[in-house]
Design a protein around this nucleic acid. Structure first.
Lengths: 253, 253
DNA sequence: GTTTAAGATATGTCCGAACATAACGTCAAG
DNA sequence: CTTGACGTTATGTTCGGACATATCTTAAAC
């Protein structure tokens, strides 16, 4: 169909990972607008030269990430997940899809190199002496009068100095994907921890909530095949602003 | 609504769901002790007379539920997920696996029919006038000196009057499975919401935490193919007692 | 016009097969 | 005893095919 500029970058990893990556970028870039329908499985087979099983594995990953929904349809296609109007969103897609819509802005607050903070390092589950590039951003809901839904700190390996800039224009969920593409570091696993915490003092102002009030903390770690963490995202949501939804067993949306 | 107390094996649902169900029961019953290794995929094929693909789909579900972990092995088998020593557990497996070990006790606090509580109904995402059988239980960590990790209210359709009794002896995660088996109501989907809340006053005592302090609320809804909710579980974890871990993309444990 | 029925379509489920690869066990070499 | 090489083994990945089923579209019937 389209020009389909083949970015033969690294051809990293397995086939279904390539499909997953390309579809993620397609959704992020607007090639597959949020709310639209993806090509059918068979069409994707043709597009990527992969078998249907491989395509389905890729779609499974996207569903698990909350980026697309699936349902039986007829004469139509798989639906790219719509951004819900409420604050109820997928754990994986929130901090990413919130900014997918063109009108949904975010503010990148700061960037810099982070030296070891023992308490923070433990919360993030990384070595105490490790150093990271940090990109902080305020998560908005798209509605002008609504308070922010969260605050995200993204930490990347200092070796990837180009990432902080990209983080300003790319959805957070794509950062690890960009590292994968540009630096050839494959994503082997993504772990996620969710916990209740007291809202830190420093975030009380930006998030317009009382310090010490209940908040949700979501920490994600991206690991390469060697098991080494090369990216961490740390998001804090004040209570009531955000409900993380996920589907434990497959079903329609 | 037919309420037959038939325990005939309905052979409900699709093949991989049967395999999933049986393995869940096997893990819960101790047939596959926590920490042990499940039969290999090929052995499971023989056991259930299913293809490897079907077995893998079933295992995928169990991994997503946090009940088993997978990794490449040699001359050995898939490892049934161990109950972590720390408070860090899978969202799906916590309230269930916590009690899998024989030494891990729980206390069933109350049982009764629940009439509509508007606030609760909204929090649970069910109709305001709906009625449910409630089974409350305190979640313990197995360590005598450790404070409880959470409080769970399980709500089931009043038609299933046998469930509250079963809930006392069966892991919470199996209740919906038991309904599926004994009443033929298939689980089509399971939705899960996670949010930060202030600890309710009534739970401050049992959970040994300050009322109003940060807490994690996990609500799960079990839906049948018609989209009707027939079970709800509502768990509240005080901050610091519990970190919910999940794996967004497949990887070893 | 509204409702029903039939056909078309895409996803869900299931099977079989093959090779790649990571882990493990073993055994020989240092 | 420790280390390294190597074969074994089970899972990861990929392909192919087939039928079931939900859903949409269209046409017919009332």
């Amino acid at each position: 169909m389209s020009e389909h500029n083949v970015k033969q970058n690294h051809a990293t990893g397995v086939r279904h990972a390539q499909v997953t990556r390309d579809l993620m970028e397609g959704i992020a870039s607007g090639r597959f607008p949020v709310g639209s329908l993806l090509p059918t499985e068979f069409e994707l087979c043709g597009l990527y030269g992969a078998s249907r099983h491989t395509v389905r594995v890729a779609l499974d990953e996207l569903v698990q990430l909350g980026l697309v929904s699936r349902r039986k349809r007829a004469g139509t296609r798989v639906e790219a997940r719509t951004v819900p109007g409420s604050y109820r969103q997928s754990l994986a897609s929130l901090e990413d899809l919130v900014q997918f819509g063109t009108a949904r802005a975010r503010e990148v607050q700061s960037t810099g190199e982070v030296t070891a903070d023992p308490a923070l390092a433990e919360a993030l589950g990384c070595a105490a002496g490790s150093r990271w590039l940090r990109v902080s951003s305020l998560r908005l809901n798209g509605q002008a009068d609504a308070p922010p839904v969260g605050w995200t700190d993204v930490y990347v390996d200092p070796a990837y100095a180009d990432m902080p800039d990209l983080a300003r224009t790319s959805p957070a969920i794509l950062i690890s994907t960009l590292i994968e593409e540009r630096h050839g570091r494959r994503i082997a696993e993504v772990h996620q921890d969710v916990a209740a915490v007291a809202l830190p003092d420093r975030l009380a102002g930006p998030l317009q909530a009382e310090a010490g009030s209940p908040a949700l903390r979501v920490v994600r770690r991206y690991l390469d095949p060697a098991g080494e963490v090369f990216e961490i995202s740390d998001t804090i949501h004040p209570a009531g602003r955000f409900t993380a939804s996920s589907r434990l067993r497959r079903g329609r949306e």
